[in-house]
Simulated assay, not measured.
Amino acid sequence: MSRTKASKYQTFARAIRREAPQRRLPPPVAADHPPAVETPLDGYSRVVVTAVEQVGPAVVRVHPFRADGAVEGVGSGVIVAPDGLVLTNSHVVRGASLVGLRTQDGRELRARVIGDDPDTDLAVLRAESEMVLPHAQLGDSKTLRPGQLVVAIGAPLGFDATVTAGVVSALGRSLRGERGRMIEDLIQTDASLNPGSSGGPLVDGAGRVVGVATAIIVGAQGLCFAIAANTAAWVMGELLQHGRVRRGALGLVAQQAALPRDLARAMGLSHPFGVWIAGLDPQGPGRAAGLETGDLLTAVDGRPLRGLDDLLRALGPESIGRAMRLEAIRQGRRFEVTVTPRERTPERRLEALA
């Protein structure tokens, strides 16, 4: 190639480079320090994470001691007061007067059993600690609705703050426990309950304890049941005041039931729930007063029965031997009966409220 042509090509190449856009490479990133990426939480995750952050620190592992000092079994519990009140299951601490607690931050505490109530599978402990302990707030379980998101927190197999989530499947369940007794006012949820999580809290989306999980329902594998927080609060008050729970009994098996809107309107009732009688003790006060299977109880002494826990409260210690007036519906007609509750005894295990 001649010198003249080579000069022309060089001039042309320089012109192209001047007009071409200049590409700038990004600055190098160190391989051991990748850029931080914050993944936003979806709505479901935010609810679960918030519930765990609020209640998780109050969840404890519970291990009762035998008379010889050996640890027997393990369960979970939840601190519900800053002075160390702990709710757990009766079957977790059965027969123990002293139990050990392990907090989420690894502290080992001793606690004494204030009282337990096998009829609701609840027990109340008092932790021995000079420090203010993290605690959870008891919510109003009556505000729960089927389909509502709930979170179960426990310490299965000794691990701390294990979480499962699900929805409320049903309310006001009455199921028979391992000793043949009926446990009332249960919340059913599909949030799985792992071994060792029994006694742990069931939490709503606002971070309030709405139930205490129980795992002693015969034949209930794959399902989680929890004692409603309203019932737990009442039992805790009785145990703190009296050391035991005395109850009246009507001699019936009952479940919470929804009132059909048309029926409620026709009967002049404003509340959406009542108490449905599923069975009666032939020798019980309810049968003697004229109640029948299938009756729907709507009020006691003029107070509406908006759920099974309302009837359980009405059958407190003061109800024993005192006549009460029940309002009910049978085959679309309202009627009233007067019934005198007797004291519930452990021997009558086939009765739900006796």
Rank of each mutant, 00 (worst) to 15 (best):
S97L: 08
E178A: 13
E343L: 06
R333M: 11
G180D: 10
L308S: 13
P57G: 06
N230T: 14
E38T: 11
C224K: 00
A136Q: 11
R102N: 10
V132Q: 15
E347V: 10
S198N: 03
G69Q: 02
T50Q: 15
D121P: 10
A258E: 14
L202E: 09
L250D: 07
G243H: 03
Q283V: 06
S197L: 01
G222Y: 01
A13C: 04
D295R: 11
L305H: 00
V218D: 10
N230K: 02
V47R: 06
A328W: 00
G154C: 00
G200V: 02
A152C: 05
G139A: 09
L101H: 06
L186C: 08
Q54K: 15
V203N: 09
V29I: 12
P57H: 03
I329K: 04
V337L: 13
R265P: 07
R61L: 14
R110A: 11
E292Y: 11
P64M: 01
R145Y: 01
R145A: 07
G139H: 02
A161F: 03
V71W: 02
L41Q: 10
V168S: 10
L308N: 10
H63F: 13
A220T: 05
M324V: 15
G237P: 00
L223K: 01
A226I: 07
E184A: 09
R313F: 07
P35Q: 02
